[in-house]
Design a protein around this nucleic acid. Structure first.
Lengths: 213, 213
DNA sequence: ATCTTTCCCACCTAGGTGTGAACC
DNA sequence: ATGGTTCACACCTAGGTGGGAAAG
């Protein structure tokens, strides 16, 4: 499956157009206001050797699918531009040309394949997707380059007849507010604080009036 | 899917024969010696309103599948006999006729559907399956009656052509050593101790020489 | 020197255990 | 009274956080 999809969609890499074979399908990004808070500062996402989740989590509610048709939902993350960045004196500057994007991997939502009904009855969470800077990663995580800017993408692929999967059955959705720069350590402390304030797993770092050892 | 399978296999309820449409498929129960330790005492499984996992976990390694065919793996749990039981003075006695088995539910392994290669490359774990005594359960758990004896079953269903699923494509595997009596609280303290000694989640109850509050 | 990456850690979330008292 | 069921709880497993020191 992943191989077929990869081949079909690889042509689409490095492009942000939203290919829509089915104009009825609509996707709404959830937690959009949180994404916008990050984006207004300059979103950073940690990448590690073992893989790190994204925060905010990519969540979407979907409508307009054919109720009884089967779909695969998957994400990839493509370069947002051709630059390499550096954080210097409170701002991100371009320092050169980007490294080649060797990843080309997809995160297939674990509920795939499922019917339109199943995808539409509640929002679809991609919280288990992980990002890595390890080019030799064997765990299927999304491989990114540190200090590069990226754009997550959602693909909705109709698979009623998996044997004849065609490019025309792929629907790609891009939300500009989810653009981020991959880092191995946070650069902007405002981003660090926004993560701490909103990610439940970072609650231990919140300044709640009590002292921490 | 579940509906189709249910209809096809319902005829098979209350029977322990192993229907095998494909004689090449072989299933080996893992942790068999642990299952046998429990069985020799009289296995009990806790059932709760919210659902409880089984311990030992049902794990199986599978061979003989067609590598590139697609299969669904699922389990159900059927009455082992027509009795109602009671634990009295260190042994289980029959106290009457069983309540009707109103469940008829299946736990579909979350990796389903997958190819023969995928199912065979490592053992298949059913640790997330949960048992409940709540006849009104909305979470899809397996519904059982307390103080009744049950037999778990594994079904391997070939789904190359899901539209024409037939009984002949179902392979059912039964392991007598996994028979258990459903309970809302453990009756035999030997079973309690064997659970504590072997279930990592019960480590807090092990007598390791240190005192517990 | 400077910048980036890695590693271990305390601190969380999330949820699987049997206990023992309370409930029915 | 008896026996089965439920619930809050302490104690675990499993794993997601950023910090800070160390390494590269």
């Amino acid at each position: 499956l992943s191989a077929i999809v990869t081949k079909e969609m690889y042509k689409n890499s490095f492009k942000h157009e939203c290919y829509r074979s089915d104009p009825n399908i609509q996707v709404k990004l959830e937690s959009r206001s949180l994404w916008l808070q990050f984006a207004s500062i300059g979103t950073e996402m940690i990448i590690t050797k073992c893989g790190r989740r994204m925060f905010p989590t990519f969540k979407a509610s979907i409508s307009g699918l054919e109720p009884h048709a089967k779909y695969i939902l998957l994400m990839d993350i493509v370069p947002a531009d051709d630059n390499r960045y550096k954080y210097n004196s409170s701002e991100w500057n371009v320092t050169g040309k980007a490294e080649p994007h060797t990843g080309g991997r997809f995160y297939v939502h674990p509920d795939s394949p499922a019917t339109g009904i199943q995808w539409m009855k509640q929002s679809v969470m991609f919280h288990k997707m992980k990002l890595t800077n390890n080019a030799m990663d064997q765990n299927g995580h999304i491989i990114l380059n540190s200090m590069h800017k990226y754009q997550p993408r959602l693909h909705v692929v109709k698979t009623d007849d998996i044997k004849s999967m065609e490019f025309s059955q792929v629907n790609t959705f891009v939300f500009e507010e989810t653009v981020f720069i991959a880092v191995t350590a946070y650069q902007n402390e405002l981003i660090t604080q926004l993560k701490i304030d909103n990610n439940p797993f970072a609650k231990g770092f919140r300044d709640n009036g009590h002292s921490r050892k």
